[in-house]
């Protein structure tokens, strides 16, 4: 039924996953001493930047974003502005949630904020790309039985995977193994990244295997 869409989704996800891979490998060529643990912040920025750019480009090319009602330049600009605002607000939101979870308030604020940026670019950005800066739509998608298309389901799965990944990533921190990946926020960002990649793989697969059961209400 949605074979076409599922195929599009799979290829999109493959592109994004490949870009994450490139963002990890390529800087090693240009920057001396680049490593995921050692220069963790640099890796974070590189990955978030790449994922942001590639997602925006791919989703724009694919044209999944709901059609805008008006086509004036001003309206488009305001949409763009609102998207940026939401992006920033979501960074702040993630930052405060992470602080509430016990991250130091002042000491490593930069690390915490970088993690928030990564989480935002992995989750909120996708929402922005798929749903547009529309809070009502977000609330609809993230409540029970709220998905109205394959892309909504995919969004639910990837976002949940990313957040759960980051959540699970916090577990090894209290262990006294003194490993480089136990340093704040390495384990959390790695967890988020692994969760995100899992989500990218899992969502098309899950939708493919459940395509018989999935029914979407019309708008």
């Amino acid at each position: 039924m949605w074979d076409h869409e599922i195929r599009a989704m799979a290829s999109t996800h493959a592109i994004i996953a490949a870009s994450v891979f490139m963002a990890t490998v390529l800087p090693a060529v240009f920057v001396r001493g680049f490593s995921v643990y050692g220069t963790h912040l640099l890796w974070l920025y590189s990955v978030s930047g790449t994922v942001t750019a590639v997602s925006v480009a791919v989703f724009w090319l694919l044209g999944i974003t709901p059609p805008t009602k008006k086509h004036t330049l001003g309206y488009k600009l305001s949409r763009l502005f609102r998207s940026c605002l939401y992006f920033f607000l979501s960074c702040l939101f993630f930052h405060s949630v992470v602080v509430l979870y016990g991250a130091p308030l002042i000491e490593s604020a930069l690390e915490t904020f970088s993690l928030a940026v990564l989480l935002t670019s992995l989750t909120t950005l996708r929402c922005l790309c798929v749903l547009g800066p529309n809070v009502q739509a977000w609330i609809r998608v993230f409540s029970r039985h709220g998905a109205m298309s394959v892309w909504d389901t995919c969004l639910q799965i990837t976002v949940a995977c990313t957040v759960v990944g980051a959540w699970v990533g916090a577990f090894p921190i209290p262990l006294d193994w003194d490993r480089p990946w136990q340093v704040w926020p390495v384990s959390c960002s790695l967890g988020a990244m692994i969760g995100f990649l899992t989500g990218l793989v899992a969502s098309p697969a899950w939708i493919h295997y459940h395509r018989k059961q999935l029914t979407y209400k019309c708008k």
């Binding site: 949630v97 979870y101 016990g102 959540w167 916090a170 209290p174 262990l175 006294d176």
Partner: peptide
């Protein structure tokens, strides 16, 4: 089962409690 988690059990509870509140 892990000695560090017993030593730092408060972290487990704070973490769970936060998640519960969310």
């Amino acid at each position: 089962a892990a000695s560090s988690f017993v030593e730092e059990e408060h972290q487990t509870w704070y973490f769970l409690l936060n998640t519960l509140c969310l």
